[in-house]
Amino acid sequence: MTILKKELKKSVKGFAVWTGAIAFMMLICIFLYPQMKDQMEGMNQLFANMGSFTAAFGMDRLNFGTLTGFYGVECGNMLGLGGGFFAAYVGITMLSKEEKEHTAEFLLTHPVRRCSVVTQKFLSVVAEITALNVIIFACSVPAIMAIGEEVPAKELLLIHGAYLALQLEIGIICFGISAFLHRGSIGIGLGLAAVLYFMNIIVNISDKAEFLKYITPFAYAEPASIIEEMSVDGLLLGLGLLYSVAFAVLGYLKYCRKDIAA
């Protein structure tokens, strides 16, 4: 586990910045809720008249006057986008950065199996994403209690669980892609996360694009659907798991055989 320890140690600063930024934004939203709650009656009416714009973000199905509705839209977007970009960044750089920085030659000329290198780096991606979500969840719960609201435990667990799955899926897909890159390409990872996010917006506003929900993980992490159904769509989650496994296996196969650039 030497490589895993080193990866975690190396990523501490970046991890702290991302986690701190997302947690900070979410806490601001939570602490703003008591002030906004009273104004939500009018806001709901306003959103109802905004047509497909509200549908795009699932706001047509959520009541802003409730904590879960407010949390689902405001905090969900922070966690979905912020966490999604973080996962993409960590995943896409994990394997390719060694070649970009020319350190792969140093690492792989030690008696370490390549599959062990991939496994330890994979675990590092999973650990970072999981830790980010655990910390943010651990910040959110006391913040909700601090504003005097009852913690909607099941809804919160479902929303955070779905976003954890979403981020793991994006992180693992990017990790798999990373094995094919000789030079790090953060743009590919962040671009992919953005495309998946916008796919879900398209799904929300157009019935003709419904097939996209089988591709983007943002579909099963949609807070409006989770709160309505009080569950995460098993089929979409299963597809996400399938994509994750496929990209992880591809990444393993590629990295264990690839020529390391000088």
Binding site: K10, E101, H102, T103, E105, T109, H110, P111, V112
Partner: peptide
């Protein structure tokens, strides 16, 4: 190669290491 690399000391022409 993972087995014999235990007993090999390698120095590349352009040594690159972890800068941090």
């Amino acid at each position: 190669c993972r087995e014999y690399l235990r007993d090999v000391g390698y120095l590349p022409s352009e040594a690159a290491f972890y800068n941090d």
